[in-house]
Design a protein around this nucleic acid. Structure first.
Lengths: 132, 132
DNA sequence: CCTTGACCTTCCAGTGACAGGAACCCTTAT
DNA sequence: ATAAGGGTTCCTGTCACTGGAAGGTCAAGG
């Protein structure tokens, strides 16, 4: 199967698939004309990667997940640990963004948003931390 | 004032300050020995940038905010619009992360995390979208 | 046989916002 | 004189791609 069909089936851009090959995540054989000839197993792997990436796992995490996936003697604890660590990072990130959102939301609400120059948003950026 | 003192006062690494100069956000004059000689106005600008970055504004947004800050005839509406747009992006990002978190959280909870290979996390990554 | 268009290939550059490190200069204290 | 602790520039690397140029391949139509 050629790359554009694989792209559709895996839900990944062709460029991304080439990149994944470059970094060794998939190793499709080649036709005599030099085209990548994807097997079903390659498509399956790529779909796996697509879903793992959609859950925010890094490429290196994905590499590990693929290895675990293919290792039939894996311990589910290893997978769970990886996923848990990632979950914590996401939760940290959410908390951080929520904090930004709360501050920003207040600032936006406090700004008149008219044609006058007076602006609490700029005032806050200029003065926070240095009370004058 | 030398860069490391400015770094402390503005709450930014020296490397970052040099980078901000490189991209034209600050333009400190130089001493005869080649050292950057920061003025109070430079420190003030850098502190402004530090706070804007902490709220997640991009560098280009920061550049615009600085321009607006220094333009005493600005309309607060322009500032508010920029901040609102940024707020929406943050909210989108939060929603996206929360969706990841919800999925991941379920998967992690459903995984035994012992020494057996059976793992719902890997199963989900392999099979989601292709019901078998 | 030729062309057209849609594929495919590789390779190079750019993204955002820095961080790390090498190699070297300046200042101050001992 | 030297050593420590500033400062400087310049180059590379990060992360996960994306865009684009230059060129090979294939199937269909005239």
């Amino acid at each position: 199967m050629n790359i554009s069909d694989v792209a559709k089936r895996a839900g990944l851009p062709a460029k991304t698939i080439r990149y994944y090959e470059e970094i060794g995540l998939v190793k499709p054989p080649r036709d005599t004309n030099g085209y990548r000839a994807f097997r079903e197993s390659d498509v399956h792997k790529l779909a796996f990667l697509s879903r793992a990436r959609a859950l925010g796992f890094t490429i290196e995490d994905c590499r590990t997940l693929l290895t675990l996936y293919e290792d039939k003697t894996r311990a589910s604890a290893d997978v769970k640990e990886l996923a848990s660590a990632h979950l914590h990072k996401i939760e940290d990130k959410i908390a951080q963004l929520q904090s930004m959102r709360d501050t920003l939301s207040e600032l936006v609400q406090s700004c008149a948003g008219d044609d006058r120059p007076d602006c609490p948003i700029l005032k806050d950026l200029a003065a926070r931390g240095s009370p004058a």
